[in-house]
Design a protein around this nucleic acid. Structure first.
Length: 425
RNA sequence: GGAGAAUUGGCCGAGUGGCUUAAGGCGCUCGCUUGGAAAGCGGGUAUACCUCAAAAGGGUAUCGGGGGUUCGAAUCCCUCAUUCUCCGCCA
């Protein structure tokens, strides 16, 4: 979340950002509400601290009087404090209420959008910043979409997934399972070569972790919730991996923190149905290799560029046509300041599929995480957090299968063959 | 799952209701000393919030988390979490 200080000092920028995000004009008053609640909070704390201070010094007096055996004086001092205690109790109750209101409002305000974020309301308004479509595949006569290819070659069994769990839980088998594993290993090796440390995190997280990276409270319905133990199944490795740095003051020489990890991701995707979710286009469980970086603020945008290049280079090695989009104000995530989406072209479906999202959260996430570092003046500052998919599986498989189909089967991209140990399906 | 013990600052560790402003040590850091270093000596060394134009200074809170008792809690009580030991179960 934003700092109240930011809202006070950079109010014009916050308003401009909210407008880019199509925030309704009549709800702009939330900023003044926040400022006035913060004023209340300060006033309450100032007066309450004074009262607490009085009680503290009186208690010391009483202690001394008791030791000297002056019982009556001690009793008199006690009764003097008694009324103060009621005042303090009431003030603390009020502070709790005000703080809760303040936090609730702050949670409603999205991150400040970067100045390069284009205006717009839907994904149609996203800006294509790079196109790598020089090798658009030419498919043979009677080319099939990936779900038919997968069934034909016995790679993925959607019906068994339905039987075992429900719709959106595909079962990979045989060469399908091997291809999935090959891609995971390839992605992890690429990340390792780029200097990321590999993590295998827990797949269930507690409420605090989900809150710290921003999934709660605004995306509650997106996560599977194990209510008996109050754990959430992770919707992305970002959650457990970024939470490594919750409540941490990072030493400056540890920057940049570079972590990667493969995990399954679980998303409820409530309300999704129809042709656009067919096959692997949108599922409840998929594998993903995530890359996470934590840096000093002055480096975060060059880090974002580095991560974008990393993803682009992987897609080029896989020989998949892709494009990079800069998300517009209406499409960009709540916690992100700037997001680039990667889409690969799935040739049989004639559709672009989102396979990666690379974002700079600036200090918005680290404020919730309380991830800080000491700058050269010894002052504690919030770090910047970034993450990206490198890459999300399932959809990559869809594109690999569709784009590489020939009359003689599906050709595995050369870079994957050392991992699959077979060249065609 | 059952029983018991524990959790104190960056680390180790003392502390069973009030001269605790958390002793002492280690580490780190600055200074003195030295030709230089080590040793020695001296100082500094948590986080958040409030106050102050800012700095300095002052205040409040924090001894695993939350709540309570008390004029006063690291210390007593309740509760949750984690760690260790033993038992049970188990890949």
């Amino acid at each position: 979340m934003l700092l109240t200080r930011q809202i006070r000092e950079e109010k014009e920028r916050v308003i401009a950002s909210l407008k880019t995000r199509n925030w309704p004009e009549e709800k702009l008053s939330i900023l003044d509400d926040i400022i006035s609640l913060d004023d209340q909070r300060r006033k309450l704390q100032t007066s309450n601290d004074e009262n607490l201070s009085k009680v503290n010094s009186a208690s010391k007096q009483i202690g001394m009087l008791m030791r000297e055996g002056k019982k009556e004086e001690a009793e008199a001092a006690k009764s003097e404090i008694a009324s103060l205690k009621d005042v303090i109790k009431a003030a603390e109750e009020e502070m709790r209420t005000v703080n809760k209101q303040l936090t609730d409002l702050l949670l409603e305000v999205p991150n400040i959008a970067h100045s390069s974020v284009p205006a717009g309301s839907t994904d149609e308004d996203n800006e294509v910043v790079q196109d790598w479509t020089k090798d658009m595949p030419s498919l043979p006569e009677g080319a099939l979409p990936h779900w038919e290819l997968a069934t034909k070659h016995n790679l993925i069994d959607f019906e068994l997934g339905v039987k075992i769990t429900g719709a959106g839980f595909p079962l990979f088998r045989g060469k399908g399972a091997k291809l999935e594993r090959a891609l995971i290993n390839f992605f992890l090796d690429e990340a390792a070569a780029a200097g990321y440390e590999e993590i295998i995190p827990p797949l269930l997280v507690n409420e605090q972790s989900a809150m710290a990276t921003g999934q709660l409270p605004d995306k509650e319905g997106q996560m599977y919730h194990a209510t008996k133990d109050d754990f959430y199944l992770i919707p992305t490795a970002e959650v457990p991996i970024t939470n490594i740095y919750r409540d941490v003051i990072v030493k400056e020489e540890e920057f940049p923190v570079k972590l990667t990890g493969h995990t399954p991701c679980f998303r409820r995707e409530a309300g999704s149905y129809g042709a656009h979710v067919k096959g692997l286009n949108r599922v409840h469980q998929f594998d993903k290799v995530e890359i996470v970086q934590i840096t000093k603020p002055e480096n975060s945008y060059s880090t974002l560029d580095e991560m974008v290049k990393h993803v682009a280079q992987i897609l080029e090695k896989l020989e998949l046509p892709y494009r990079i989009l800069r998300l517009c104000g209406g499409d960009i995530g709540f916690v992100s300041a700037l997001t680039y989406d990667f889409e690969v072209f799935s040739a049989a479906q004639q559709r672009w599929l989102e396979v990666s999202s690379v974002s700079n959260f600036e200090a918005y996430q680290s404020n919730r995480l309380k991830c800080r570092y000491k700058d050269s003046n010894g002052k504690t500052q919030l770090a910047h957090t970034l993450n990206g998919s490198a890459l999300a599986l399932a959809r990559i498989i869809a594109a690999v299968l569709e784009n590489n189909q020939t009359e003689n089967g599906i050709k595995i991209p050369a870079v994957l063959v050392p991992y699959t140990k077979f060249e065609t399906i």
